[in-house]
Every structure is written in structure tokens, then in C-alpha cells.
Simulated scan of single mutants.
Amino acid sequence: MTSPLRAVRRLAGATALVTALTSCTLLNATPEVPKDWHPRGSVSALVAFAPGGGSDRSARVMAQGLNELDGGYHVNVENKEGGSGAVGWAGFLAEEGNGNALLVAEGALNTLPLVYDVPFTYKSFTPLMMFAQDSRIVVARKDSPYKTCPDVARAAREKRVVTGSSGKTGADALVIGKFKKQGGKFGVVPYGSTGEVLTGLLGKQIDIAPSSASSAKPYLQSGDMKALCTMTAKRYDDPVLGKVPTAKEQGLDAEVTLWRGVFAPAGIDDVQRRYWIRSLERAMRSKAYHEYLKADMLTPAHRSGPEFAAYLKRYDARVKEDLK
């Protein structure tokens, strides 16, 4: 039979153990995010591509818009290039739970995991805001026998048509996928950027080239190239490019969209997510943002939070079909 003294000692020991375990749990617990949370100091905005490209420009515009809000923090763009975006996006996984980190990404975040074995998908991050949409225009040299995109599709059924591509996972790859679905043979020469693709076209290394509208426009104005079609839903609102018919107008079921948007790491608090969505909405009112849309000939977009997530799910299903 246990003596009363021994029972008291056991109870005291058990109480001490519970107290110690509780203290340990509290020490290791993640502090609750206050309801009035806002970032302080330096906020990183990661771009998984080199400075000077489309993703880098979009990140710097969004960072400028956020910094103009004077919210007590400063957004710094950080470039971590390599592996067609894989290096930067894989590195961003380590920011899980960090409300002071942002990621500016684009459609290749959907397509890259379809082509390469990478440790992430678009679902690995928290979607905040889709702020723009890009597409592609298909061009050829001024002396090319092709006048339209259906001309290219028909020619590819009889002989190999060579095109350039600035990557296996971006908008260029989606354009090529649309052509391949028409049947025919296509050869693809890889390049590091849209500028290099267009240089290759002028140098007669390739027959046709998908390009961003802003990159192709000067060559169309100079007469060195001609436009075959756009892959947009409707024609560009532009004196030069507005004359170019869409692929759909020409009878091809071919539309290509490249989204641009901002993410936070996985595991952030809902308070932090809402803060960044509100701030990005305000940043999209800036003069720099609207000048950027005009200069890069982009379509404005505004899909935030759950709406952006739903769009990404639909987009992912669509590009899986395009890249089959």
C-alpha cells in the first residue's frame, strides 16, 4: 500500500514534469501573428530569372509600387537565376512561413514541373495577386513564303519548319505546342532570350519565331519582319499590331496566355496574406505599373487570393494538354 507521503511526492513529481513539458512547448511554439501585422525593414522579392528580362522588369515595377506606399518597409528585388527558373523557385521553398518574402513569377511556374523533375509546383506557394497577362505574336522574315499562321501549319505537313524558342517551359513552348497539334514536323532551336530568337530569325537560322509583342514591334515597323498572327484572344490595341489578325481569326484554335503574378511562401498567416493582397492592389494604381503595361504591351489583370488560385488550377490543366 502506498504511503500518503509517497503519493504526495509522486504527485509533485508529475506536476513538475507537466510544468516542464508545458514550458518547453511554449518555448518552441510559433508566436501568434498580431492582427495589425505589417512588414518591417527589408522585404525580398525573388525573381528566378536574370536581370533585364520580362520577369525582372515586372518585379521591379511591383516593388516600386509597394515602396511608394511608405509602409515602413522596403522591397528589394533579388535575382536567383538558373534552370529555367528551377533554382530560384526551389530556393523559395525555404522561406516557408516568412511574411517578409515575396516571389514574382510567371506561367513557367506551371509548365516547368511538367518538363523537369523539380521539388515544387505552383501549389507550393501562396498566390497573392495576378497583375498582368502576356501572349505571343508569330513573325517571319520579310522574304518568307509564309503570310499567315495556317500557311505555316500547312507547310509543316509537307516539310520540316524550324522555329526558335527562348525556353522549353515558357510561352514560346506553348506556341510551338499549338502548332504541333495542327500536325506536321517542327524543329526547335533553343535560345536564351526572345532577343536571341529574333536575331536567329534575321540570320536565317530559323524559319519563324514566337515573340513578345514589344520585342517584335520594332522589326515590324522597320520592315525587316512580317507578322503572321497573334496568339491573343483579341487583337492588340495598337496602331501597328492592331492590324495583325489573331490565330483564331485565321481558323486556328490557338491561344497562348502567360500570366504574371506575386506569391508569398507557403505557411504564412492569413493576416499576412490579406495584408499583401491589399498592398498589391494599391501598388497596381501606380503610374509605373500602368506605364509598364503600355510599354510591354501587356493586358492588365486583377485576380487576387482564391480567384488567382482557381485561375492557376485551370491554367495548369490547359498547359498540360498543350505540352502533351
Rank of each mutant, 00 (worst) to 15 (best):
T194C: 10
G267A: 12
W259L: 08
D296W: 09
W276F: 03
Q205V: 09
A209Q: 09
G187H: 13
G195K: 06
W276I: 11
K217C: 09
K287Q: 10
T246D: 07
L280P: 04
Y292C: 11
G195C: 01
K234G: 11
V256E: 05
A216P: 04
A216E: 05
W259T: 04
P245F: 03
L280E: 11
A266L: 11
E255T: 15
M231T: 07
K234D: 12
Q221F: 00
L202H: 11
G200H: 07
E249Q: 13
P190G: 05
A288D: 13
R260C: 12
S215P: 02
K248V: 15
I277K: 05
P265C: 03
V271C: 03
Y275P: 02
L241N: 07
E249Y: 00
R278W: 00
A216T: 02
D224T: 02
M297W: 03
R282E: 12
G195Y: 03
K234P: 00
D207S: 02
Y191K: 14
D224W: 07
F263W: 11
L198F: 05
K204T: 09
I277S: 06
Q205W: 08
K234H: 08
T230R: 02
L252C: 02
R282L: 09
S214P: 06
L258D: 13
A233M: 12
R285F: 03
I206T: 10
F186T: 03
G187K: 10
S193K: 04
Y289F: 05
G251V: 10
